[in-house]
Design a protein around this nucleic acid. Structure first.
Length: 579
RNA sequence: GGACCUGUGGUGCAGCUCGGAGUGCACGCCGCCCUGUCAAGGCGGAGGUCGCGGGUUCAAAUCCCGUCAGGUCCGCCA
């Protein structure tokens, strides 16, 4: 950013850009009074803050400005006297003297201190978010997010993608995430919904001949909130025609790696791939955090004819926890409870001690079993080995969750380990009606090698769906879409969706496909999560200007609120009494 | 729908186990003093429905029940 662009009719420079090269010049800065230090009748120091930082102004004690007053200070840039330099301040070698201070806006004392001397309760921060945004952390995070945004846009433009906006007012498609509903005034009793993603809109763009589309799109889902989930979130949404899965992975890699480079200055290496089956088997999750080891080992073979009742299951999974031998009994009980909450029947543990395995189960193990436990992941004395025996995916998931609990470093730590997860299953589980459920969405193309299994072994069908994972966070997902009516109808049939039902839910999409649908595939990258990880934040609220609380409230505006009778009447809305 | 944690002057905490006067610390705020501070310093001061409601008790910030708000997680998020 050049000086020229920073100067305005009111200011010459930003606070932190003042330096010794300006000495002797009379310049104006604008900003907030961050701090006033008084030294008697004729001397006071003001720290003037703008988005770039602080600069000190030396003023007469009679200048009546207080914390967070908005001021324009015009003064002479002066080298600080010998012995009064401040190394901890970027502008600590100079100061503004002979100042004229114009109060542009007086201010009441803020409800919390804007310096970072203490952590402020998030409830208070959110109630006064406009003040919180003045803090360095929020300035840094939102600007980092803007850098990510810009890099992604440039990468998509460079790859020939065309940015197209899609509607926020969309038609209900009852499937998947719960939708936010918007009543129609002109069509009383009828409703729009806010899109949970531009999925169908972008597929129609493919039919429309926009063979490379992208959008920084807002998505809305009326589901419970979490540290990594808000009602509304932002995605880099993209779709392309005449492409394969590998083409899409290439587009997304380019964009995400460009963004990483823009933020960190270092371009990460090529993103490796792992199949969904391998991720589950080794890490017990479809979003493995590869910053640390503690990979799961399969001991099912060893225990296939075991005498130990706790281990008589189709799968026995084991994980070494380095240093875990020091876990107290109550800590282990706690972990066992945790495992049970996750659905495990129990948790077996084996401390590796110089005398051998220390465990309530140790004396029931035969020699081979003991040796196998002892050898898990190169276990050493001082470690503990945790085991879960169950049906395969259950055992993996439970131990995988414990792996994260015990091993996962803070978000701000460690290198960035990206990984593509591929070959997701096409279907998973069944709903209340006994119908198979789509693992991704019903337009996902099955793996070409597995097409024949749709009718015979549907749970074995892999799909051409893929996720991008970074340090244990699901950054995004995508798939090759079905563009052929015959395959689509077989998938709908497997999902228990009748022709009539398909017609009523997705009729306009299926109809459009009759007029020449190109093969296409796409992806969506979660921007909030990407920005949070780059910012080293555990919570996406820290990279969102005005986030909601876990109960979906906006503490600043008070939303959600009741509407006026007039508004309700216009919309023909009547609210039922509670309960 | 469920589990756990938190709620005490404007802010951040301690006090809660083992009930005994709104007790303490730090920051901020207000006033006075102070001409080189930058976490300025000194002196003085104001500021409280201990989230809310109920119960137990001679007595509740403290124990019990309920409730509200915030957080983390499970369910949920095709």
């Amino acid at each position: 950013m050049s000086q020229h662009h920073e100067s305005t009719s009111m200011r010459d420079l930003l606070c932190a850009s003042l330096d010794e090269s300006h000495v002797g010049r009379v310049l104006s800065v604008c900003g907030w009074v961050a701090k006033r230090r008084e030294h008697g009748e004729h001397l006071a120091f003001l720290d003037i803050r703008d988005r770039t930082g602080l600069v000190q102004a030396v003023v007469d004690g009679s200048v009546d400005v207080r914390s967070e007053y908005v001021v324009r200070v015009t003064g002479t840039v002066t080298r600080r006297p010998e012995g009064t330099l401040n190394d901890r301040l970027a502008t600590g070698r100079i100061e503004l003297t002979d100042c004229t201070v114009e109060v542009l806006s007086a201010a009441e004392p803020p409800p919390f201190q804007l310096d970072d001397r203490v952590d402020i309760d998030e409830q208070v921060r959110l109630r006064y978010r406009f003040l919180d945004l003045r803090r360095e952390q929020m300035q840094r995070n939102l600007r980092l997010r803007a850098v990510v945004n810009g890099a992604l846009r440039r990468a998509m433009d460079a790859q020939g993608f065309c940015e197209v906006e899609t509607p926020l007012l969309w038609a209900p498609t009852p499937e998947g995430a719960r939708e936010f509903v918007v009543p129609s005034r002109l069509h009383p009793g009828e409703f729009y919904v806010l899109p949970q993603s531009p999925q169908i809109a972008k597929q129609l763009l493919m039919v429309g001949g926009f063979d490379r589309y992208y959008q920084i799109a807002r998505c809305l889902r009326d589901e419970d909130l979490r540290a990594d989930r808000q009602f509304e979130f932002t995605q880099l949404d993209l779709e392309a025609s005449f492409v394969t899965q590998d083409d899409v992975l290439g587009f997304v890699s380019r964009a995400v790696l460009d963004a990483a480079e823009a933020v960190t200055g270092v371009r990460p290496g090529t993103i490796p791939s792992m199949t969904w089956a391998e991720a589950l088997d080794r890490y017990g999750t479809d979003k493995p955090d590869l910053r640390f080891g503690m990979a799961l080992e399969d001991l099912s073979e060893v225990f296939v004819r075991t005498e130990v009742k706790a281990f008589s299951a189709t799968t026995v999974k084991a994980m070494r926890v380095p240093g875990g031998a020091s876990f107290s009994r109550s800590r282990l009980d706690q972990l066992t409870d945790h495992a049970k909450e996750l659905g495990a029947k129990g948790l077996a543990w084996f401390r590796i001690t110089p005398e051998g395995l220390d465990s309530p189960l140790a004396r029931f193990l035969n020699e081979a079993e003991s040796a196998a436990i002892r050898a898990v992941d190169g276990a050493e004395v001082g470690d503990i080995v945790l085991c879960v025996a169950d049906e395969h995916s259950e055992a993996c998931k439970v131990l995988g969750a414990l792996r994260v609990t015990l091993g996962s470093p803070p978000v701000s730590e460690g290198p960035h380990h990206y990984v593509w997860i591929t070959d997701f299953p096409m279907f998973e589980g069944v709903d209340e009606d006994g119908n198979l459920q789509a693992a991704h969405h019903p337009f996902t193309m099955p793996h070409p090698d597995d097409l024949d299994l749709i009718e015979t072994h549907p749970l074995k069908v892999r799909s051409q769906a893929y996720d991008l994972v970074l340090n244990g966070w699901e950054l995004g997902s995508g798939s090759v879409r079905i563009h052929r009516a015959d395959i689509q109808s077989r998938v709908f049939k497997a999902l228990g969706i009748s022709d009539e039902e398909a017609e009523s839910r997705f009729g306009f999409l299926l109809g459009a496909f009759k007029y020449g649908a190109p093969p296409h595939a796409g992806f969506a990258v979660g921007l909030d999560r990407l920005a949070a990880i780059f910012a080293g934040e555990e919570n996406i609220r820290e990279v969102i200007a005005y986030p909601k609380t876990q109960s979906g409230a906006d503490l600043m505006t008070g939303a959600p609120k009741s509407i006026s009778e007039r508004q309700a009447r216009d919309l023909r809305l009547k609210t039922a009494p509670k309960g």
